[in-house]
């Protein structure tokens, strides 16, 4: 464990807790894409299948439970909680995210490190996580504005990915044989997707005007 990865995990945990807190407190999910949240739930479900079979550490297991619990709770709130569901913007959140699931599954069947059930699903979860934010970014552009909590959510998610890249650089130089091309490439693609959001987020912060 290094400071970059710990900071990255904490930032990631805060991003999902900020979103869950927003939805739970103000009973609204305005501006949030349920499709992105469903993709994240699938990412965690397919990545943490080994949660009971391979124990890494208390921290690792605890964080997996936090991510699984929070992502499924957010989907539950947005789909089944009456008050919250009413604020869901169905007309604008129209990204065909099942195509993302299908293409990531096909890609994982083609490109993986080992052809085993767990490894292919783990690789699938990496590909899917890289594109999971797309429905949210599309919804953001459609609604042309963003309330600050959703902005913070996306900002923290981007921060977690940036810190993970620093973690891989650190591990590459400190641990022999630490080479995971698939993880690195998917992580880089995912971080680049946030780049233009960061640009506009920074502009709105610098000019101290509403992000739109």
């Amino acid at each position: 464990m290094n400071i970059f990865r710990l900071a990255g995990d904490m930032t990631h945990m805060f991003s999902v807790l900020v979103l869950l807190l927003k939805i739970h407190t103000i009973k609204s999910c305005a501006g949030v894409s349920v499709k992105t949240q469903e993709l994240y739930a699938i990412v965690f479900a397919t990545r943490y299948l080994d949660i009971f079979t391979s124990f890494v550490s208390i921290y690792n297991t605890f964080m997996k439970l936090v991510f699984l619990g929070s992502s499924f709770s957010i989907v539950w709130y947005m789909r089944y909680h009456k008050a919250v569901h009413r604020t869901y913007d169905r007309e604008q959140d129209t990204f065909r995210h099942w195509f993302l699931v299908l293409s990531c599954l096909l890609l994982a069947l083609l490109i993986h490190e080992k052809f085993t059930f767990l490894e292919v699903l783990w690789t699938f979860s990496l590909y899917l996580e890289a594109v999971a934010i797309l429905p949210q970014l599309v919804l953001l552009q459609r609604t042309r504005n963003i309330d600050n909590l959703t902005g913070q959510y996306i900002f923290l998610l981007g921060g977690y990915r940036g810190l993970y890249i620093l973690n891989w650089i650190y591990r590459y130089f400190t641990e022999p044989h630490f080479v995971h091309w698939i993880t690195w490439i998917t992580g880089l693609v995912q971080t680049l997707l946030y780049a233009d959001f960061f640009y506009y987020y920074f502009l709105s912060w610098k000019n101290n005007k509403k992000l739109n």
Binding site: R5, D50, S54, V56, N60, M63, K114, N167, H177, H180
Partner: peptide, 10 residues
């Protein structure tokens, strides 16, 4: 000893 591909990251 953990194999290098061990999934120790989240």
């Amino acid at each position: 000893s953990k194999d290098p591909s061990a999934k120790d990251e989240l």
